[in-house]
Design a protein around this nucleic acid. Structure first.
Length: 293
DNA sequence: GTGTTTGTTATCAA
DNA sequence: CTTGATAACAAACA
């Protein structure tokens, strides 16, 4: 459920604390999370610094000081990066008061969902936690990186690349539902189930509409809605439905501002009609049957 | 024990 | 080639 605003919130947090930090050691607790294997990870990363942190869609891209080395990180549904100053690794015994730091990371760090730990020379540490183990870290060279970006990621919201011309031409060619098309990272990078539902609500478009059936006016409205909801969520540090945390273990604040996602059976804020929940493109899909046409 | 949840990829059938 | 459906991955939760 981390989508563009959540991953970008995390990226900005990490950028503040990790740049030029040297990795002194690496703990690979769950081997399958480190896609190239534990030995390769240590060989490539220990003794190196993090030079920059970029993002494409939901993918984080760490540039490593070793020439031609990049570390990709995908959170999938439940991945977290949590950063701790100093070497204050925490082992249980703390109060789990709702909303405090220890509650947010399951009481301790590392915890049972910690997969990989980056230890830095200054005593700080970065924990990659992932309850469901779908997330991964992967080391690639520039050639591989470029290939991945080219093949899997389309234009991003809030950039001129997501233009009216582009979206009009792309939507026209597809016979799939607009929901399925917007979830496709190759068409728009960074949207997921939450923001697709929200953007379709804001633009008044039913999720089951065929992509090719959208009128020019609707596409204009859709682009506006996508940019608007992403920008607003960024401002509120993303949505925490359950697992998302920023680099300090804090939840995102956009959750309470969601208009339809997670609101099945509740009243539409616009018209009072009951928000429907159905399955579209294999995903739980929330919409207002009156406000969306 | 069952169904649901989700990002992404794989597989299969039409 | 395109699409939709389904499974897979894993674990928690109702």
């Amino acid at each position: 459920m981390p989508e563009l605003p959540e991953v970008e919130t995390l990226r900005l947090d990490l950028e503040k604390v990790l740049l030029d930090k040297e990795i002194i050691s690496l703990d690979v607790l769950t081997v399958k999370t480190a896609k190239n294997g534990a030995a390769f990870f240590k060989k490539k990363l220990v003794g190196q610094k993090i030079k920059s942190i970029a993002r494409k869609g939901k993918l984080l891209i760490f540039e490593i000081s070793r020439p031609d080395t990049f570390l990709l990180a995908h959170l999938k549904m439940t991945g977290q990066f949590i950063y701790l100053e100093n070497d204050k690794k925490i082992v249980g015994g703390h109060s789990l008061k709702e909303g405090n730091f220890f509650e947010s990371v399951g009481g301790s760090l590392p915890n049972k969902h910690t997969r990989i730990i980056f230890n830095f020379v200054d005593g700080s540490a970065l924990f990659f936690n992932d309850l469901r183990k779908f997330g991964y870290l992967k080391i690639v060279d520039r050639k591989e990186l470029n290939l991945i970006l080219l093949n899997n990621y389309g234009p991003e919201p809030l950039t001129p690349d997501l233009s009216l011309d582009y979206l009009r031409e792309t939507l026209k060619k597809r016979a799939r539902t607009i929901k399925a098309v917007l979830l496709d990272q190759r068409i728009v990078a960074g949207l997921g189930n939450i923001y697709v539902d929200e953007a379709l609500f804001l633009s008044g478009i039913l999720p089951e509409r065929k992509s090719s059936s959208l009128k020019l006016k609707e596409i204009i409205s859709l682009i506006k809605a996508i940019n608007q909801v992403i920008a607003l969520s960024l401002k509120h540090r993303g949505t925490t439905f359950k697992d998302f945390r920023d680099a300090k273990g804090n939840k995102g604040n956009f959750s309470k501002l969601l208009k339809v996602y997670g609101r099945g059976g509740k009243k539409c804020y616009n018209c009072g009609t009951e928000i429907k929940k159905i399955k579209v493109a294999g995903r739980g899909t929330h919409y207002c049957p009156i406000c969306q046409k």
